[in-house]
Design a binder for these strands. Structure first.
Lengths: 138, 138
DNA sequence: ACACGAGGTCTATAAAAGAGACCGACAGGC
DNA sequence: GCCTGTCGGTCTCTTTTATAGACCTCGTGT
């Protein structure tokens, strides 16, 4: 816990960043980039949010996020399953139903994700204002 | 939806998510999606991390993130500037040099971003293991 | 005069996302 | 028995987005 009383974590992130570079500098072996590319993609966050309250079926997720194509929904769920963040359970009913849920690992992502979402909610007005200002200046 | 009371922030995110839907359900007007699509994109996080330690010049950022094309670097920096997260200062030297830095708003993003990066560092081994397992199963 | 480096832009190509038709199995209506 | 609809996908086609890399302008050092 390196709190120098300054409450700045900028240097913290900068330090880590420098460390990644020293340790190889190869972007392909950088786990942070690999992980963040997932977390950051357009649908992953939304789907994880949708599953945060409990397991949902494929159709239910689709209803909750209407503007995702089935193709992307399937793919994103596969990726989540592959990375151990989500579970996929098939019930041999007819028609078959499939239920997706978060693993403990997936649930552990909710914490930082919620922080990020909270930041977005706090600051979207400021961002919108900045955009308006920027457009006016050019 | 079941609530077994042991997942503290799961319901939190699920609640917010439900609230976004109640409040319009239009994904285009959802500020969180708008903001997260930025934060999540491949380069934004890296560039913000690179600027976390202080302002850097265009070429310096490029040297630190070698595998970004100039085109994407320019574009991502423009977006950060547009959204009020980064500043761009041109020095009339020759050849002209341009310095990019974070605004207070940009620095406020470091907090949640650091949390996310920390999560990625903590869990990338588990994710890699899950991937290996998944590949073996199929 | 020439090449060079800074900070870009432009173009051509590759990768990814989106729309939406289709599928296989079964259930219910007629 | 036949038609229709549902569920959880896959397949194909089109559009969007990213990448690589050539090129540009301007001044400077040699």
């Amino acid at each position: 816990m390196r709190d120098d009383g300054d409450s700045r974590n900028g240097p913290d992130l900068a330090e880590r960043f420098a460390a990644w570079q020293d340790l190889g500098l190869d972007p392909h072996s950088c786990p942070v980039r690999d992980v963040l590319s997932h977390v950051g993609d357009k649908w992953t966050t939304l789907i994880v949010a949708a599953l945060a309250g409990g397991p949902h079926r494929f159709g239910a997720i689709h209803r909750v996020i209407p503007d995702i194509s089935k193709r992307m929904l399937t793919q994103t769920l596969r990726d989540l399953e592959r990375d151990g963040l989500a579970t996929r359970r098939v019930f041999p009913t007819s028609p078959p139903s499939v239920e997706y849920g978060l693993t403990p690992l997936g649930r552990s992502l909710l914490d930082p994700l919620t922080a990020l979402v909270a930041w977005a909610e706090r600051n979207h007005a400021a961002i919108a204002a900045a955009r308006t200002r920027f457009r006016a200046e050019t």
